[in-house]
């Protein structure tokens, strides 16, 4: 196996190339947030922390952030705008009216 290089996906010679189209490392350097033209926003006043958006997000673009309330461990969704492509699935799937809304990117 060639030496791991975070960003390298094209190699000089066949002998250095993996046999299949595979990155040698994670692709997390490939920040896809610039693809977004619609920006989902979470209204934490309405969000119940059900985490449906986190389950449905097709990218690792919604993190589950741990916090404590009344001595209990809880989670809330936090959108990672470095990776969010703005597909809107979280907005469609959110069961609480208005807990996730979208705005045009750049507003």
């Amino acid at each position: 196996m060639p030496e791991k290089t975070e960003k390298q996906i094209v190699f000089d010679k066949v002998k250095d190339t993996p046999p299949l189209a595979v990155s040698l490392y994670t692709m997390d350097y490939n920040k896809t947030g610039s693809w977004r033209n619609v920006r989902p926003v979470i209204d934490y006043e309405k969000c119940t922390g059900c985490m449906t958006c986190w389950k449905f997000c097709p990218e690792p673009a919604i993190d589950a952030e741990k916090y404590e309330e009344d001595g209990k461990e809880k989670y809330k969704p936090v959108i990672d705008y470095e990776y969010c492509k703005g597909c809107g699935i979280c907005w469609v799937e959110c069961p609480v009216e208005g807990a996730i809304y979208t705005e045009e990117e750049g507003e």
Binding site: M1, F11, K13, P18, P19, A21, S23, L24, Y25, T26
Partner: peptide, 26 residues
């Protein structure tokens, strides 16, 4: 040698241009 493994993440089959595809077919 390469497999889908959450402990050792790789991206499989990602976009590859003329600078990389030829060697894979070879």
């Amino acid at each position: 040698e390469y497999r889908i493994d959450p402990a050792n993440p790789h991206a499989f089959g990602g976009l590859t241009g003329p600078d990389g595809y030829f060697e894979l077919r070879y």
